[in-house]
Design a protein around this nucleic acid. Structure first.
Ligand SMILES: [Mn+2]
Ligand SMILES: [Mn+2]
Ligand SMILES: [Mn+2]
Ligand SMILES: [Mn+2]
Lengths: 218, 218
DNA sequence: ATTATTTTTTAGTATAGTCTAAAATGGTAT
DNA sequence: ATACCATTTTAGACTATACTAAAAAATAAT
């Protein structure tokens, strides 16, 4: 059984390791968790003991298969709660993070099952991220940053990479949303900024920084 | 800001003090919280420092007005979550306690507000207990144990005093439920057991122990 | 190849919550 | 009035999590 803190660390490691593939540095976990590196080292050693990560002194950590599954179970809960908050309680997609970050730790299998059922077994959360199944499997659809689309190319917004309130509020303001059909009208070579057409009617201009954080599929 | 543990203690003290009226003994809190008396004393001192209870060494504790309100805020959240679990997620009334006991600690005013709205501002939880308003006010309807009804008297089941799974499952089995109209058909002087008629059709026989834990109004 | 810098780990401290064992207190019974 | 007993509190220890400051290791710069 993992504690709240352990679950949070595991989630952070999962995200930083790109789904368990890459190794993760102490400093990066420290940054993500907003704790000091010394605290991270402590926790890494404990998680190592528990067998959910492989910890090699001075060389960062890797998730074990067990660790990956546990991380995904928490992520599953987080995303299901996010769907609930947006679909049922009318939260906006920029308000759900904090709350879901607490709700995800509520321990009850039956609760997640019933909630999932109640929501109609959603496949994606409000930010377009896939909801893992109860066995820790994620089937992610191919997606890439909008910044990589060529001029003239079309696609559909399927997710956001950054889900900070600031970024999401900006997207709301300019009218970009998950599911929108888009086409790249122009691209400035100098700074990578782009102009896109949304749903065949509205044209939006955005910096490369923004375009990199919008994920599309074709 | 209170911790999870502090909220749980405060709730226990509230219940044991009959809504803040009576003083509460260390041993009773210890029993209710399933912690040792020494741990309770520690916590009482801390809660005393924080001004939510009045702690007099060796003489038990009283809730302050602040403490009472804080306890009621947690109780409000617990009961709203219980309604959600039963009404929306099809939990049975004997399954909600554990889960609501965790959910009640999620910190977000907006969450409780929206949930309350989503549920249509319920006034009572699945066990018939009143849901305090956001300012810590409870308006409880007059109610008393079924065991006190005279033979021939009628009433309506409005709440249960014991909400353990064992007791609630038993009530399900015999067909007693919140809202049922009842009439006392017979009462055995010797042991206080009673026979009641439910909704004018089904007759149930129950021990005094059971009858004392069913609350009715007339 | 040394030296300097960055990253990571260790050592020691703090708070929250719990425990056991022992001491203190208040109330009860003689 | 004193002795006894149940209750409560203190003292000391433990786990979890975080911190600061200092040491150690890895990496980068000369
Ligand atoms: Mn979290
Ligand atoms: Mn999300
Ligand atoms: Mn609780
Ligand atoms: Mn209840």
């Amino acid at each position: 059984m993992l504690t709240f803190a352990e679950e949070n660390y595991l989630k952070a490691i999962y995200h930083l390791s790109d789904g368990g593939k890459k190794g993760v540095a102490t400093n990066d976990v420290s940054h993500a968790m907003r704790t000091k590196p010394a605290s991270v080292t402590d926790m890494m050693q404990k998680l190592g003991e528990k067998g959910v990560i492989e910890y090699r002194k001075y060389y960062g950590v890797h998730l074990t298969e067990d660790g990956r599954k546990l991380a995904l179970q928490t992520i599953r809960k987080q995303r299901i709660w996010e769907v609930f908050l947006v679909e049922k309680l009318k939260f906006s997609w920029d308000e759900v993070h904090e709350v879901a970050d607490e709700l995800e730790h509520v321990r009850s299998q039956i609760l997640v099952q019933r909630l999932d059922e109640y929501l109609g077994y959603p496949k994606f959360d409000p930010h377009g991220d896939p909801i893992p199944d109860e066995f820790g499997e994620v089937k992610s659809r191919p997606r890439f940053p909008l910044s990589e689309l060529e001029v003239g190319a079309s696609g559909q917004i399927v997710a956001v990479k950054d889900s900070s309130a600031a970024f999401l509020k900006y997207l709301d303001k300019v009218g970009a949303y998950i599911g929108a059909r888009i086409k790249v009208l122009d691209k400035v070579e100098f700074d990578g900024s782009v102009e896109i057409l949304v749903d065949g009617k509205k044209s939006i201009f955005m910096s490369k920084d923004v375009a990199m954080n919008i994920l599309v599929m074709q």
